[in-house]
Computed example of a mutant assay.
Amino acid sequence: MNNIFFDLDGTIINSEKGIMGALKYMYTKTDGFVPHDDDTLRAFIGPTLSESLKKYDNLDFDNPLSQERFKAFKEYYQEKGVFDYSVYDGVYEMMENLKSQDKEIFIATSKPEVEAKKIIDQLDMKKYIRHVFGATDDEKTRSLKADVISYGMRKTSVDLNSENLVMVGDRSSDIIGAHQNDLKAIGVTYGFGNAEELSEAHSEWIVNSPLEVPEVFKK
């Protein structure tokens, strides 16, 4: 496996502070109060906002209230939240290690592609990452992780297939999205998911730190 798709939130960066701020702003602006506790709000991180609104608020994407919440979330997140994050310890060392193994590294995230590219630029990670693939800004035509992975596999000039590509992510959506594209996946427990969630999604490998990721490729 010479090519790697990395999730962004919960795998490269800890984006909890910015996303939680946007979620609380979203509910306060549209409902006047926040209907969920922090543990529930953390579960929003990873899947698309439309998925989470459907799961936790029973709102389809086309519902007017869903659209109002989506607009409020974007209002806060694009202004304040997008750069309110930290990089997980060991990520830069992981990137260096993988590059020394001649791995080609890509980002495949459910975050809008424009925002993801800004973050990678700010982190000075373009020297490691060949391309960033993300969701469309409206979450309509490309938002599910399976769709982002498929899009990335088609768009790059590299011949990516199930024999030479693996997905790395922290949530079940990353693992399921990989499997839907006939890829194997490495689940990481240091993000927003946990070993139980990743195991139930049938992740082929589960690691506990960024520095364990390169070790998978040495086995």
Rank of each mutant, 00 (worst) to 15 (best):
V82F: 14
Y128R: 06
L160E: 04
A108T: 03
A195H: 15
V188G: 09
Y151R: 10
S157Q: 14
T48M: 13
I175F: 03
V91M: 07
K140C: 11
E113F: 01
D124K: 12
D84Q: 13
H202G: 05
F192Y: 15
K140F: 13
Q67G: 09
I206Q: 05
F5M: 08
Q122K: 13
F73T: 02
V82G: 04
I175Y: 05
L198W: 05
N97K: 15
K29C: 04
K24R: 15
D89K: 14
V148L: 07
K29L: 06
T141C: 08
K145A: 03
N2E: 14
Y92I: 13
A43W: 10
D39R: 13
T109G: 03
S203Q: 07
E115M: 11
T109S: 13
F217C: 04
V114P: 02
P210F: 04
L8H: 00
F33D: 09
L144V: 10
H179F: 12
T48G: 15
L165D: 02
K17S: 13
D174A: 09
K126H: 09
K145C: 05
G21E: 00
E197Q: 15
D137L: 14
L98K: 00
N14A: 07
A135L: 03
E68K: 15
K74A: 08
I4Q: 01
D174N: 09
I13N: 03
E93I: 07
K55Q: 14
S15K: 03
T48L: 06
P47R: 14
V158R: 09
K29E: 15
E75N: 11
D170E: 08
Q122S: 12
K218W: 01
Y85R: 02
P47Q: 14
M26W: 11
N161V: 06
A178N: 07
Y77G: 02
G81Y: 01
M153A: 09
G169Q: 06
V207Q: 04
K218G: 00
V34D: 04
A201F: 10
V213R: 02
K184W: 05
T30P: 02
S86H: 12
G32A: 10
I129H: 00
S203F: 01
P64W: 10
I19D: 01
H202F: 12
E212N: 05
Y128C: 02
S162N: 14
L211A: 05
E212Q: 10
S172P: 00
G32R: 12
K111M: 00
